[in-house]
Design a protein around this nucleic acid. Sequence first.
RNA 1: GCGCGGGUGAUGGAAUCGGUAGACAUGAGAGACUUAAAAUCUCUUGGCCGCAAGGUCGUGCGGGUUCAAGUCCCGCCCCGCGCACCA
Length: 810
Amino acid sequence: MKRYNPSEIEPKWQQIWEDQKVNVVVANPEKQKIYVSGMFPYPSGAGMHTGHAFSYSIVDAIARFHRQHGRNVLNPMGWDTFGLPAENYAIKTGTAPAVVTAQNIENFKKQFKRMGVSIDWSRELNTSDPEYYRWTQWIFTKLFERGLAYQKESMQWWCPVDKTVLANEQVEGGHCWRCGSEVEKKSMKQWFFRITNYAEQLLVEIPDLDWPQKIKTAQTNWIGKSQGAEIEFKINESEDIITVFSTRPDTLFGATFVVLAPEHPLSKQLATKDMLDAVDEYITKAVKKSEIERMNDTREKTGVFTGSYAINPASGQKVPIWIADYVLSGYGTGAIMAVPAHDERDFAFAEKYNLPIIEVIEKPTDDTEAGMYHGEGPLINSDRFDGTSSSDAREEIVAWLEEQGTGHSQITYKMRDWLISRQRYWGAPIPIIHCDEHGAVAVPEDQLPVVLPVIEDYAPKGDGLSALAAASDWVNTTCPTCGRPAKRETDTLDGYACSSWYLLRYADPKNAEQAWDPKAVNYWNPVDYYVGGDHAVAHLLYVRFWTHVFNEMGLTDFKEPVKKLIYHGYINAEDGTKMSKSKGNVIDPLDIINQGYGADSLRTYVLFMGPIELDAAWSSKSIAGVYRFLNRVWVLAQEYIESDKSFMGNDTAVTRIQHKTIRRVTEDFNRLSFNTAISALMEYTNELYKLKVDGFSTEVWGEALNVLMQLIAPFAPHLSEELNRELGSEILVQDIPWPIWDDSLIIDETITIIVQVNGKLRAKLEVAKDLGEAEIKALALAEENVQAFVGNKKPAKVIYVPSRLVNIVV
RNA sequence: GCGCGGGUGAUGGAAUCGGUAGACAUGAGAGACUUAAAAUCUCUUGGCCGCAAGGUCGUGCGGGUUCAAGUCCCGCCCCGCGCACCA
């Protein structure tokens, strides 16, 4: 008998698939399309890791499943190539990033092909290819035209090691997401995308997305919408006002002081003569104190009194104005009304500085805790609003303020604009030319792409400019508007810009006339299944943002780029900890394949480990078990092929388990429950092993095995293809329609009825499938073990669940 | 602190609609084959009592609803992830 040898059959079929271009697809409006993609990888020098193997096993299983259903399946691949590792390598070695990138891509591609993934390589794209980033730049100019890209001087996160600015999303707990070093704040002129204009529409679409709840929640929190009010406090003995933002205008009568952020424009000017020094000192210290400290602080409140007072517009009371760094300048108006009786932070501050505390909401009597109460209740000490419930008062007080012209309701979002400037070489140049007369001018479409020049030294000089600034030939150019000498922008685009539209480019990857043909994109997109385990907010929010803009521009007829998001877990090392080189516990998927397990075992194993959304620990024992399973499938087929197919056994049993399995695998697939689909295939195989001892009958067993090859193909395509051929099929598995089941063939002649007494299992009944209720109940009661519990008591009730169970209540 | 997940055998997990808890796999044990081992095949495998039939307990803890609860409700505990002085 031929032995199962993955290292022989897998490369063979990979070659055949490639030669026959079986995965190359063209748009065809007559055919139902399915677009499935993983989040494209950054091709690092280290090559493919288990995370890639996991992601693309999911992608490929889905792709093959739908192809077997006759659908037009787009499964593309590309490379997210801009980024710091290639640049840092270039700085160290002088090798151009493009050269290293090309090598890494080649390596990745080879590895992916060895996985047997069914990718349409004719659509391969690479974000650092000028033919690609030309259109990234074009999109930038379109956003610029629409006022959605703008430049602003601002304090920004700055990574002192990578010498670059970082977006909020790239700062993780005060550290750089790439190199882990502590970040600082630095004031620079930076480019932004005005994503905040889209806060509301990005938010309203979230509930309708077929995405995991945790991602939707993360995005909702990130956008951070709050309904509240802006309220004006007149500054005492002055015409000036301070506008504060509050989500609790109902507590206005309890506002006993006002707090400004240290960065607030009024902070300094409100300091009275005798407080000036103290205020100055506090502001300087607070601004210098890194935000990290402010975040990691023990939350000990600090602040300084300005010496000035404001008038509470509701109570008319004179309240002191303080400056404190617990108020953030970037949110709301950078100023708050402090209500210490009903806000924890204000309470702590008031306690520390002995500021007055006035309760304006009645605490429930069962709340015996001393101090601050932030719940709801009737108002007190609130003049005409006394007795009004706090929730009603929120609206009524704002309405009253509006009448007086001292306030209005206001919605605020936590989300900030997207910072896109990077002071690095290895990114798409921002297509802007700075002209003394015309300011920032977009590079016209016919002059795109602005190609990255090849330079000598890739290292940034630490002056806040990219290494491009030193390429004077490139920097010095002429203004597209007036033709006079002008300078190119030397910042490059955040890599997230490049990855915000690649899912559209896949639909029309070779288009040299436009970023994409809307016809192609409207056929293939949005993506039906998008698979990944990273970027809960950043990428997945930016992609949505750009697609909303494209929709507005008429470039797509949909707003949301991704229908179903599959967010899978991590594969950890065997000891349950994260894989890491330093711990030496890294599993290399290529090693697993080359050890002899093969790609099929690897792919089947990662999907069998557990539900895809869960983290899992690698188990070398378990993958051996999966290999054993595939081997059993192999042996079963070989034995049939070599047998004389005489038969003495139970054809009905074979057919029944076959149809049952088709149904289980299909239904499990539809809910993306791969681990149970694979276990159903294992049971099927185990069952056939038991049935084969009676011998093989040609027709029934041939079909049973063909079905097995069909069902196993999304997981173990090579094994499936090889055995399919050996079983006599002339065509490829993906061209054979997915088997369908017949419910009537699944039903057994007999069914098992569970018999309970008072809800406890006492007997099982094997009865004919069409036996009536009365007969079943009678049989149940007659059971010896049932009698032992019922005795001569009369059953109070007998519950019958058709074909399932009888419960006798005594 | 807030939000979102989750807690089931020795282990990964299954139980899709409230109806046999523990599928499948790993590990462990026994047997067959073998000079032997590996591989392969077969069987057993939640705890406790029992020769067995069977009983009894059992899905983080405490209550509840129901003929029936891993599943629904209330209150707690623990773990993971995300956000975190956002007024």
